[in-house]
């Protein structure tokens, strides 16, 4: 193998995956752009040290995971959570858009109830449609572990939906 791939290639090839993964790992929509910027700044800084003995996607996903984790821990994020106002008024003709946002917010809520490992597997398998084998490679975990986490995540999400349904009844 030659040297590490060019930054531009990595960026162009993976930016969409990074974007939606950042979102689905718990970064709020308004912050996704900043977090993606941060991810690719780290990628740019560390790319010269990538030697090709690991899969690029595994390496990249590791960076996404750490930057997202860093972001979610930050005081900035916590303070925003505290001060954020909930507002969900449907403007005329916007009911469908509001319903979609409600659904997306509920999904966020249920994903937030998963621990990080299960959330990652659920996001990659169920939301991104990746095969378990590919997820195992991406996160560098045994296939059996991925199956086990996926099963547990599905179970918890299902119970969460039941709970919400019961609460709304």
């Amino acid at each position: 193998m030659g040297g590490p791939p060019a930054f531009e290639h990595v960026y162009r090839e993976h930016v969409r995956f990074v974007w939606r993964t950042v979102r689905r790992l718990g970064v709020r929509e308004a912050d996704v752009e900043d977090v993606c910027q941060r991810v690719f700044e780290v990628v740019h800084r560390q790319l010269p040290e990538f030697r090709g003995d690991a899969r690029l996607t595994t390496w990249l996903f590791g960076i996404v995971r750490r930057v997202v984790s860093d972001h979610r821990r930050s005081a900035y994020e916590r303070r925003r959570d505290l001060h954020e106002e909930v507002e969900l008024e449907a403007a005329p003709g916007q009911e469908r858009a509001v319903a979609e946002r409600e659904a997306r917010a509920l999904l966020d809520q249920l994903l937030d109830e998963l621990d990080e490992d299960k959330r990652i597997v659920f996001v990659l398998c169920e939301l991104d449609g990746m095969a378990v084998k590919d997820v195992a490679e991406l996160i560098d975990a045994p296939v059996q572990t991925v199956y086990s986490r996926l099963h547990a995540a599905r179970d918890k999400i299902s119970r969460g939906v039941e709970r919400l349904a019961a609460g709304a009844a």
């Binding site: 106002e85 299902s158 709304a168």
Partner: peptide, 17 residues
């Protein structure tokens, strides 16, 4: 597993992005 109405749980869950 059906019918999560548009109720309070949704209101609480939604972040205004």
């Amino acid at each position: 597993v059906v019918a999560v109405g548009g109720g309070v749980a949704i209101q609480q869950a939604v972040s205004h992005r």
